[in-house]
Design a protein around this nucleic acid. Structure first.
Lengths: 365, 365
DNA sequence: CGAAGTTTGTTCGTAAGCTTTACTAACTTT
DNA sequence: AAAGTTAGTAAAGCTTACGAACAAACTTCG
């Protein structure tokens, strides 16, 4: 730990405070960070020279003393490019500003491409989006299914036919920009965590498969083999269940994946009554609750967020899951447990990649 | 982040390296920590002045250059007092040296004491042990059942009749020494983690009740309500189970607690055949595996350690638990999963409290 | 209306901490 | 005996943050 590390820590602290709290003066920043006004002024000067912070002008309200000069992160001065490879049929991408607002979108049909061809599609989409950016690009973030190590190498992503693909390194070399890659569910939980304070959070992403991302103590859990969150193929309960693609009976994914739910609802027929449809969804919710209960107990989780098609998840399914969780864990722990849908909708992975780039490039987490 | 924080970080880094790697020279430390020899010399001088580090004399082996002066942590110059309140009938305590070796033991029968009387017993035992120490006491560590917050206040420990008891503060005031308190299962997982490198580890403590402690990313998981590890009252499976003291059917504790296992084995009779006894234990092990599977999946845990009576746990129970875990999770994750008994035996909580004091007082973790 | 008080942000000098460079000490190898 | 190597220390310098003091610009009070 050198003095310069302390410096970059303080720099990130100032930027973080400015990012989350919004426009404020140097003196406000000093009070908020615990540093002195002198130090804050120095750090702010450095950040302004880099174009990351701008002065907004004087504060309007009438107070005694010299009027404060308001500062803010130059939210419009840089762009982030985000790529979501978790879709089954398309690769989606976007240009975002530093606040995480999506400014431009683009997508490429995947068309069943795998391996090198799939990488090529991702790289081309990223390059296209970088071209659309009307301000310097801070970095590129990618969320992909599969096991991704901290250096952004995709250790294994069966659906895309990727194995030990150095996604981050190759894309960075090609674009000449910083690139950050992570698992799609991890990106999603980062989006949900946003720039919030350190806490604990689990995000369950339900789509073609079922995966999850975890934040414990404010930090993303990667797992010993970088395979955290893989709950899709955990067997639920002790009474069998539907056959899973992995060959076993009763995996969570076999109960809960979107194809399975859709197929079950379709089987009821178009004119099925609402109660029958609700029961199908409630049964899936109960199964989710059964798997999550031990995790909630072991980690004392306060909040779980679901991501996926709201018309399937938001209703009987989520209600049954919460009720099951309550029934199967200690009352003290789940009394305050929150289980809810994400507010990010379909863009959750894109937003998460932006958080990842902000965190990696600016230390803003 | 001030320069002095960097200083104390580097100080702890030197001490940590010395503690884990053992006797070595200042130059070795410089290479090991990445600091320069000058800085290491300065820090070592500071640590020697405090009596925490001592010179052992010159290195013996024949190498070119000036002979190195070997250093080590003054492992015998300080003592740690550890208290384990997790026993059902007695409070156990010990005096340990900085290496975690137990030098003296003492215990007090609890005799059903609760509330203030139980606290009094703990305080008296601690004072007695401090008196037994033949070197300055670095600090006192306590492992207690229940929910303990980071400031060492026991939020709730029903068996001891404690609620919002500021255990750490009151004991520290009484003894005039630094005190650290935590949950017993958390202390146990710290013992198992020891001074090892950052990794992931779960410890399941099976006794009168069932609890667990978790280390994720090298850090102890406390949980949002400081109630992490409470898996004893998570319901197992979807086929009912024995009635639990909490009123529900099929809690893990109802399947797995020592009283329950003992009672089941006793019910078989003294001349029961070995296979019947093994089946009782294997069934309990399968139940443990069912609860742990989602946690292993979500966290990508590489290792789980059991603590409790070896004659019950080490055998059919542990074998069945591992087999169940393998059957119920993805093969990639559990291929390398280790499930084993602790090597600390009954002293695991005492050893854990020592780790806690070392970490809290010296930054050695 | 002017003096007093308040708040902001900067300048200047200082203390802490780590580094580089240079040195001595003490050993092995040739 | 000379050369080379390694350990540890001393001196000087750079970076970083701080405290004190101050000017600027406002409000409030008499």
């Amino acid at each position: 730990m050198l003095p310069e590390h302390a410096r970059s820590h303080n720099r990130a602290l100032v930027l973080q405070t400015l990012y989350t709290t919004g426009a404020q003066s140097r003196a406000d920043l000093a009070r908020g960070t615990g540093l002195t006004r002198v130090t804050v002024s120095d750090l702010v000067a450095e950040l302004m020279a880099e174009g990351l912070v701008v002065e907004l002008g004087q504060r309007e309200d009438a107070r005694p003393g010299k009027p404060a000069t308001l500062l803010d992160v130059a939210r419009g001065a840089f762009r982030i490019v985000g790529i979501d490879v978790s879709g089954h049929r398309v690769v989606r991408g976007a240009v975002l500003d530093l606040s995480g607002t999506i400014l431009e979108r683009a997508e490429s049909p995947l068309g069943g491409a795998t391996g090198e061809r799939a990488f090529e599609l991702v790289a081309e989409l990223a390059a296209r989006l970088v071209g659309l950016a009307t301000a310097p690009v801070l970095g590129v973030g990618i969320g992909t299914p599969g096991v991704v190590d901290p250096r952004g190498t995709v250790r294994s992503a069966p659906n895309l036919g990727w194995a030990d693909l150095p996604l981050q390194a190759r894309l960075s070399a090609r674009l000449g920009l910083p690139v950050h890659a992570t698992n799609d569910a991890n990106a999603a939980v980062l989006a949900e965590h946003g720039a919030a304070e350190a806490d604990d959070l689990m995000l369950v992403k339900i789509g073609h498969g079922v995966g999850s991302g975890l934040i414990v103590g404010g930090r993303l859990v990667t797992g010993s083999g970088f395979a955290s969150g893989e709950i899709g193929h955990v067997v639920v309960g002790t009474d069998g269940g539907p056959r899973c693609v992995c060959g076993r009976d009763g995996c969570l994914e076999a109960w809960l994946s979107v194809p399975r739910l859709t197929q079950q609802l379709d089987a009821l027929g178009a004119d099925a009554d609402e109660a029958a449809r609700a029961e199908v969804l409630a049964e899936a919710g109960r199964r989710l609750g059964i798997v999550l209960a031990p995790v909630v107990g072991a980690l004392d989780l306060p909040e779980i967020v679901l991501s996926g098609p709201a018309h399937l998840l938001d209703g009987p399914l989520i209600d049954a899951a919460l009720e099951t969780l309550r029934k199967r864990t200690m009352a003290e722990q789940t009394r305050d447990l929150r289980l809810r849908m994400t507010a990010h909708g379909q863009d959750i992975v894109l937003h998460g990649t932006a958080v990842m780039v902000l965190s990696g490039e600016l230390g803003v987490s």
